[in-house]
């Protein structure tokens, strides 16, 4: 048993990678994401200005030769802030997703596999979680644990957990009744094996799609949280908080919203294309 499990990922991994390499779109998307990572790592080298340095006499200036993307409400260089903001925003877009996926897979599997009361109780818990106002959780965390970035990431991850649980459970549920699962059960395959071999692959596509969608929501949610006192506090830049700050100046200084909005958009597209590619590569039945 241990041998088959050890074998399976290895051959599958190789196939997945081979599959991925065959898709130019996916490679491009991967390159874009990698570029964002590099920008985040080397932000201080790339950014033309200090992202925190204010020029009191040049606030809300439109793009110019000096400031390619203009300046913000405190006279800081928007381009430099977008570059430095990559750090927090990448983290905000990725870590909560990992939290949500990591927790939802086992819970969804159990609910979908066991069904009945176990499923019913778990689902009511997710219903209840959905009904708890995020705002209260955010203010409570900020008050008790302080404005820590990790808490903010956890809060976002937990808040989006119910969606992932329901998707995972729905996918598990859908294959539970499939002939091949019934067959596997009939020949006495262990629940673990059924879960990992049959249910997990079916869960991957919806979770991947949701994960790549959630990146966008999480990046924006990070800013809302920091505005309530949880997470990165001003003046540290993040794309979400730049968007937030731009709202008051939508008409007078539209460039303040466009730059961070555009990078979020590009990152989200790249993550989604990457997710699609991964989905295809994992899709066993296509080959």
């Amino acid at each position: 048993m241990s041998a088959t499990i050890a074998m399976a990922p290895d051959t599958r991994l190789r196939r997945v990678l081979r599959q991925l390499a065959r898709q130019p779109g996916t490679l491009l998307a991967a390159a874009v994401v990698l570029a964002f990572v590099l920008v985040a790592v080397f932000a201080p080298l790339i950014a033309p200005f200090d992202p925190l340095r204010s020029n009191f006499l040049a606030v809300r200036r439109p793009p110019s030769d000096l400031h390619w993307l203009g300046t913000d409400e405190v006279g800081r260089d928007v381009l430099s802030r977008v570059i430095h903001g990559t750090r927090i925003s990448l983290m905000a877009g990725v870590i909560p997703v990992l939290v949500a996926v990591g927790l939802s897979v086992p819970i969804g599997l159990i609910a979908g596999y066991r069904g009945g009361w176990v499923d019913a109780v778990l689902m009511r818990i997710t219903d209840a979680m959905l009904a708890i106002p995020f705002l209260i959780v955010a203010i409570a965390l900020a008050a008790f644990l302080g404005p820590d970035m990790i808490n903010a990431m956890l809060a976002i991850g937990l808040a989006s957990l119910p969606v992932f649980i329901r998707l995972a459970r729905g996918a598990a549920l859908a294959v539970r009744a499939e002939d091949y699962v019934e067959a596997a059960r009939a020949v006495g395959a262990s629940p673990m094996r059924i879960a990992l071999r049959h249910m997990l692959p079916n869960m991957a596509p919806p979770l991947l799609v949701q994960a790549s969608i959630m990146a966008a929501t999480a990046i924006i949610a990070e800013a809302s949280l920091s505005f309530l006192g949880l997470g990165q506090q001003p003046p540290a830049p993040s794309w979400g908080s730049m968007l937030n700050a731009a709202q008051r100046h939508m008409v007078a200084a539209p460039w303040m919203a466009i730059a961070p909005g555009l990078v979020i958009f590009v990152l989200v597209i790249a993550l989604n294309v990457l997710g699609d590619g991964l989905r295809d590569a994992l899709d066993v039945k296509r080959h």
Binding site: L52, R53, S54, F56, E73, V74, F227, P234, P235, N244, A245, Q247, R248
Partner: peptide, 12 residues
């Protein structure tokens, strides 16, 4: 927002 902006000015 208004005070957030002003606070960053004062900070600088």
């Amino acid at each position: 927002r208004e005070r957030q902006e002003a606070a960053q000015f004062i900070q600088a």
